[in-house]
Structure formats: structure tokens, C-alpha cells
Amino acid sequence: MNLEAIKSEIEANVPGCRLEIIPNTSPSAQHSLLVDSAHAFTVASFLRDGASVRLDYCSNVTGIDWPLKEISTKTKVKKLVDGVEKDVDEIVKTQTGGYLEAVYHLYSMEQRQGPVILRMRTEDRTDRVHLPSLTPLWRSADFQEREAFDLFGIIFDGHPDLRRLLMWEGFVDHPMRRDYVDPDDYEYEPTAHDEVLKRAKEHQAAEGGL
């Protein structure tokens, strides 16, 4: 059963849900299904229990951080400049990212199928980082969602026990985010260069220097 068939099956059974197939251009061709977070739980429970799909096994759950990125693409545009038609470079800026993503790899042990990859996106990276938890459907998501909460800061609504998994209680950062900055526990290197040298300078300035 390919992803298009699954998509149309979901649309027929879960009214109102917005689905989008995210194509994967790499040779792996593992395309994924983006589902809106409002209907994600219903869609997921259909995927688990629907007789045609029966994705009874949730293998992998993880978070991904996509910070806001501005991509500028140059395009040649014909324009009239002083009455003469000329090729002019026009820079088009598009923004991508700016959200956190949770990815679920689902398999069917019964029908030996998979993976069906389910994605959910938060609205932004700061306040509106809520996603529905799928732990009530697949218990295997329990620790993995806690890990995504710990390291990425995605808040899974409906998770029975959403605490930090790996870092200690009282830790405030989400270290797997791309913009996380390590604490200054400067490490000595005899031949410091690049990043280490930069940090060594910062550290020594803070310590009073040589």
C-alpha cells in the first residue's frame, strides 16, 4: 500500500484533516505524511486500528529542529529599464522552517509493512510548541516523546508523564536545538584553533586573562 492510497484512505475516514505528502528526493524514497496537529491523534488511531493499514508498531519517534532560515534565490527577470528591455537579477527571499517537528516511523507487524512516516509540526519554536502525544496509542512512544521534550522542547499534550528523560531536573535548555550554546566549560588544547581558540580567548578574558 503506497502513501497516496493511505492518504486517500485517511481522508475518507477522518473528515476535516489536512494531510500533505512530503516528498523525499533521495534514493531512499521514504516519503512522509505531514498531518495537522489538531487531527493527528485521530489520524494516528485510524492508522493503528484501520483494518487496511494496521500500523500496530511504532518504531521510532524523534524531534527535529528547523530554525527559521531565509533562502534567497536569484532569478533573471526581464524588465524595462529606461525604455529598454534588460535582464535584471531579482532576489526572491523565501522563508523556511521556524518550527519543531516530531517524526514517527510506523510499521505493521501484522501485515509486514512499513515504514509509514508521520510528521507533525509545531507553530513556532518558542511558545506554541504543543503537539498531541501519541503515547496513549503506542506505548513505545513514551520514552521517546519524553526525550524529544527534553532535548527539543516539544510539549506533548496528553502524555501521561512528561518529564525530562536524559538531562537533570532543573536544567533549562533544550540542547538538541540548533541554536543551543554550550556552557563555558572551556577545554584546554595545546594547539587551539578555530572554535576552541575563540572560546579560549573569551574564557580567559572572563577569567582575567594571562
Partner: peptide
Amino acid sequence: RPKAGEAYGR
């Protein structure tokens, strides 16, 4: 340098 995309291998 692989092409942009993703893969899950198990």
C-alpha cells in the same frame, strides 16, 4: 555528500 533527503535504516 549525499543528496538532500532522509532515510531510516534498521
